[in-house]
Amino acid sequence: MQSSASLTISDLWIERGERDLCKGLSLSIQSGEVVRILGENGAGKSSLLKVIAGILSPLEGQILYSGEDVTLDRSLLQHDAIYLGHSAGVKSLLTVAENLHWYCPDAPSSVLYSVLTQLDLVDQVDVLVKALSVGQARRVALARLWLSKKTLWLLDEPFVSLDARGVALLEGRIQQHVLSGGLVVLSTHQELLSIASRDVALL
């Protein structure tokens, strides 16, 4: 994990269909910060995260990651980022363990086991993801946050489908991550109980 990563967005302009989103948005995030993107439905929260992750291209604007311009080629940022979108992003025909080996092949089995224990998934380790509940599949996706050493986390509504214990676990993990120098950008309508975050409202 990078100890002094930063993400700078300048004069962003996203076009989705006929709509202009985030027009003129500028944002700077430093290591150890959590930024919560707020806005009504359709304000462009998911689009903003997708643009940062490199799924969408902005119409205008510049994106710098740790000082490097990644506007046209996001691969530098992607190597150091986790993006969790609306879908869990786990393969439904793989088991829980196989999914995590697919995403984090370098994670030792002992660490994997301990993470799955924390997330109450240890009994489902050999169960196909398609047989899990939506909340459990979400936990499998979130397990990557425990296993990966990437600095930038881009989380789109990460608390959706989680129970109270899952929410507390995730908040704890986000806090732990930013304390160790990570950056988190998340969109959520939920109040963050235990994390100090900077709110950015999209109009």
Binding site: I55, Q78, A88, V90, S92
Partner: peptide, 16 residues
């Protein structure tokens, strides 16, 4: 199809 619906296709795009 399967990758598109479970979101893993999106993960390939952002994998770096």
């Amino acid at each position: 199809k399967e990758d598109y619906h479970d979101g893993s296709l999106e993960q390939l795009v952002v994998s770096g």
